[in-house]
């Protein structure tokens, strides 16, 4: 299996755990990732909040670059995935618009490359295949799988059901973990409101942590660098501001898959989180 790989800006910095673990797990599973040459930012929420045309043109440049590799493109970051997939969808639906956007980017995108989330890529290896690679089943982990918004909404690009997705649970169960049923798996973490208006985002993060704790989970698993940052870093802040004492490590699904497959912990960057991961990982042994 070969894919063009679009890491996106966060995965070079605040979300580096996701980048490292995605590359390590993919390699182990025989998925060959070729970084999209000379990729640039997808524009994220700032882009589509500012200009519809800009929100198409910024991803379109990357779609064109990915297409030049002759491969379908995968993005681990939920925001990058959504922006690339939505632009791809809209440009394929509307050839006139595509022409206009191609003229703006100066790099023609023909709609040949498809955009696929890394969750779907890894899941397409097959749960049996994943199970066969597990050397250290994730015993003792009770996982609240957190999808957030951008992987499951809107409909045109959803990778799973928008209200009760299961793809993370299936992969984590294949790795030997228990997963909990809980109501907040697709509730918004506040996204960049956490920067611009933290007092609005704190209750949003707090609700998610509370629901995870009440469901009996001992950790959260996510697939988005911004969700990770809000749930991990801001967990300490929620505890300080709201007098709670949550101790819920937040993993990327690729990190735990790597643990289960016996990969080197350094390659999974398990030590760079804000909430300590050591205690919970001791349960796995």
């Amino acid at each position: 299996m070969k894919f063009a790989y679009y890491p996106g800006c966060s995965l070079e910095t605040s979300g580096k755990e996701y980048d490292l673990s995605t590359r390590a797990v993919s390699k182990h599973l025989g998925i060959e990732l070729t970084e999209v040459p000379d990729w640039s930012c997808c524009g994220a929420t700032a882009g589509h909040s500012t200009s519809h045309l800009l929100a198409l043109a910024l991803p379109a440049r990357n779609l064109a670059l990915a297409e030049e590799t002759g491969l379908d493109v995968t993005a681990p970051c939920a925001a990058c995935y959504q922006r690339l997939a939505l632009a791809c969808h809209e440009l394929n639906q509307n050839p006139q618009l595509r022409e206009k956007v191609n003229e703006i980017t100066g790099r023609p995108f023909h709609g040949k490359s498809k955009v696929i989330s890394i969750l779907e890529v890894i899941s397409s290896v097959g749960l049996e295949q994943i199970r066969a690679q597990v050397v250290k089943p994730l015993k003792g982990l009770k996982i609240a799988a957190y999808y957030g918004c951008l992987l499951v909404r809107p409909r045109a690009i959803q990778i799973d059901d928008p209200e009760n997705p299961q793809i993370i649970e299936q992969i984590m169960q294949a790795a030997g973990a228990d997963t909990v049923d809980w109501p907040h798996k697709t509730e918004c973490c506040g996204a960049s409101l956490a920067v611009s208006n933290e007092e609005v985002a704190i209750p949003m993060v707090s609700r998610i942590l509370k629901a995870a704790a009440l469901s009996g989970a001992n950790c959260l698993v996510c697939a988005c660098p911004l969700c990770h940052f809000n749930l991990d870093m801001r967990q300490l802040k929620v505890n300080r501001l709201r007098g709670t004492n949550y101790q819920l490590p937040v993993f990327y699904f690729t990190q735990l898959l790597g643990v289960a497959m016996g990969l080197n912990p350094q390659d999974l960057s398990l030590h760079t989180h804000f909430v300590d991961t050591g205690q919970v990982l001791k349960l796995v042994g």
């Binding site: 966060s10 930012c41 700032a46 882009g47 500012t50 800009l54 960049s192 611009s196 208006n197």
Partner: peptide, 26 residues
């Protein structure tokens, strides 16, 4: 009100993309 900082954040974000091509987080 609170919209002010959202707009500021968005402008800063896009400013970074135009200047560097990628988000310079720091």
């Amino acid at each position: 009100g609170r919209g002010r900082n959202v707009a500021l954040f968005n402008n800063n974000f896009l400013g970074s993309i135009q200047k560097y091509g990628r988000l310079f987080e720091l």
